[in-house]
């Protein structure tokens, strides 16, 4: 089929854009667009429903609430996107959040002047955990699922070790500045999230690094023959995922001005869900940062809307789970339609 199709059309790079433009708002065209952007449609339907049910949902205030809740997830979902693009998975980010939060709290306790040091320490701890994952996956060839599952358990245990089995409380008040101060009227984590999404979206689309990540996930052998140092790329995505988890951890700890050792528990699953809802393939090579951002906001909007409608937490889980599967089913189905 493609042979004949492509045989009729000459090489014409400039003409591609022109051909993509709709020349008629016909029924098939609209249907095609609906299928192509099914996730956006689902998102709009959810927003419409909540706006109809609650006057509070559509306010700017509530939007900020959603953004604040989304920020810590956003960072780990961004790292997770890169990992999943290479065909791997990082299960350890939730525990790495806990470990980095605890080390940050430990550093800053009784030492208000170490505020910035605690931030750096948390990120280094995250980076170190990610580097161990990356080393195991890229050099030792441990399957990513196993390597990061091990890190999940280890980091979680270490978080309790740092707090000697208890939360670290009584932190200096200035520790809260990291999460609660504002820049341009936005809380710092929200700014970090926006910067992170924009920066990584650009990196993945516009740099050679981004292209190499896609190539390693799409076909590691072909990437290697094209001169891509595949082990280095693999190592880097896990290290980055760890670093972002560390940053996320210190922001979460700062928000509550304490170090609970069970912080971030289960967050990895929400992050993975966001990536998958965003259209990424767990086999690697397919997915995008903007898709992940969309998936993340779909989950967070749903959380927020269901909270506003005072739906009990257990029903929220049921609805969320069903919606994740439904969203991905629609995506798989529409991908098949597109061929």
């Amino acid at each position: 089929m493609t042979t004949q199709e492509s045989a009729q059309e000459p090489t014409n790079p400039g003409g591609a854009a022109a051909r993509l433009l709709p020349w008629r708002l016909s029924g098939p065209w609209i249907r095609d667009q609906l299928i192509r952007h099914s996730m956006v449609v689902v998102m709009l339907l959810i927003i419409a429903y909540f706006s109809y049910r609650s006057a509070r949902f559509g306010t700017l205030d509530n939007l900020q609430t959603i953004a604040i809740a989304a920020a810590p997830f956003a960072l780990i979902a961004l790292g997770q996107t890169l990992v999943i693009l290479t065909g791997g998975i990082d299960l350890s980010v939730g525990s790495v959040i806990a470990l980095s939060a605890m080390t940050a709290a430990y550093t800053v306790k009784d030492h208000p002047e170490r505020l910035w040091l605690s931030l750096v320490v948390a990120m280094l701890v995250g980076l170190a955990a990610g580097a161990v994952n990356g080393f195991l996956v890229s050099k030792v060839n441990v399957p990513p699922f196993i390597a990061t599952l091990g890190m999940l358990t280890t980091a979680s245990g270490l978080a309790y070790v740092v707090g000697q089995g208890a939360p670290i409380n009584g932190l200096p008040q200035n520790f809260g500045e990291i999460a609660n101060n504002q820049i341009f009227g936005l809380q710092i984590p929200v700014v970090v999230m926006i910067v992170g999404i924009v920066a990584l979206a650009l990196i993945m689309k516009r740099t050679s690094y981004g292209m190499r990540v896609y190539a390693v996930g799409g076909n590691p052998v072909a990437a290697q023959i094209a001169g891509v140092k595949t082990t280095r790329i693999l190592f880097s995505v896990y290290a980055l995922s760890g670093l972002l988890a560390g940053l996320s951890g210190v922001m979460l700890a700062s928000r509550v001005i304490s170090g609970p050792p069970n912080l971030g528990e289960g967050y990895e699953l929400d992050a993975i869900a966001a990536v998958v809802i965003g259209g990424a393939s767990l086999l690697g090579g397919r997915g995008s940062i903007l898709g992940t951002a969309l998936g993340l906001f779909l989950i967070q909007t749903l959380n927020n809307g269901l909270d506003i409608l005072v739906v009990p937490a257990y029903w929220q889980s049921v609805i969320k789970g069903a919606l994740i599967v439904a969203a991905v089913t629609v995506d798989v189905w529409s991908a098949k339609r597109r061929g």
């Binding site: 740099t207 050679s208 292209m211 896609y214 190539a215 799409g218 094209a226 090579g285 397919r286």
Partner: peptide, 25 residues
């Protein structure tokens, strides 16, 4: 070939450094 990528990306993969300035394409 990396079948999931387009012609342009496949075409630039072996000589990425020629097409980048400080890592940017």
């Amino acid at each position: 070939a990396v079948l999931t990528m387009n012609v342009l990306d496949n075409g630039s993969l072996p000589r990425l450094s020629r097409f980048t300035v400080a890592g940017w394409l």
